[in-house]
Design a protein around this nucleic acid. Structure first.
Lengths: 142, 142
DNA sequence: TATTGTTATACTCTATAACTATA
DNA sequence: TATAGTTATAGAGTATAACAATA
């Protein structure tokens, strides 16, 4: 196979993959917008099934801890979470308020309705798709 | 299935997909960095197998045309492309210089070597993976 | 001395709007 | 009037570094 052809193949497949990922993100963004919250707020809410230290939320969202403070401020000002003290008095946990739980419930419904993969693939295909994704991650070292 | 479980499923699969997409991007970013060019420059170079109007490159890179001007400036200052006049005297095409072609060649080699999907999946799996990606795109309306 | 969260600031990426020159 | 490229500017999103409180 020519180098040009192989580049084109790798690029096309990558582009396709990224396109699907972007579609997934933009669907989620649309849902967030409909519910009147920024995307990162919505992502945070999804991750707060139980109370989580701000610290940990940063690593879940793959961002710096300094970014969590204003994010938590925003979530708090929307009445979705409260800061609660942890065992270690340095740490604060973010816990959903009842409004936050309602928001999380709405997100849950809409996300499963609108997720491109949930829509397009049946359960068997999803299993196979997921297996390949995991294979890609593990065989690429991380 | 409970709403919580379905949200978790949709979220996990989305997260996995996005993780693989981000891995693909970060591999490409690493390659670009190793070659001493910004990611968008590298993406542009890959797309310039033949000369392309700046206009078209914008839609290929899915960005505004105003972003192409400084990008082209940068590529030009690196000696990778030149602006060549098109038939219509308003349009300018970006064409690789011989240095640009060398850069594209290097990119081609490294990208096919480092692409997580090329590494982890055999040809049959890739075909199946690609088919599912296309299915997701088409059945999700876009 | 190391860690949690906070604050102030700065940076990267990209878009918007107004402009020039062609068409 | 519409289009290609340019320019100046502005905004979103996020990180860095220094700091306070606690361990």
């Amino acid at each position: 196979m020519s180098a040009d052809k192989r580049l084109a193949d790798a690029r096309d497949l990558s582009q396709l993959l990224i396109q699907v990922a972007e579609l997934t993100k933009s669907r989620f963004a649309k849902i967030s917008e409909d519910l009147g919250v920024p995307v990162q707020v919505a992502r945070g809410i999804c991750l707060l099934q139980t109370a989580v230290p701000m610290n940990e939320l940063a690593s879940m969202l793959d961002c710096d801890k300094s970014y969590i403070t204003p994010l938590a401020d925003h979530m708090e000002s929307l009445g979705l979470v409260t800061r609660v003290p942890g065992e270690d008095r340095r740490t604060k946990l973010l816990a959903l308020t009842s409004e936050g739980k309602t928001m999380r419930q709405k997100l849950a419904e809409k996300v499963t309705e609108a997720s491109p993969m949930m829509i397009a693939l049946d359960e068997i295909q999803r299993a196979s798709f997921e297996q390949m994704l995991r294979q890609i991650l593990s065989e690429s070292g991380r």
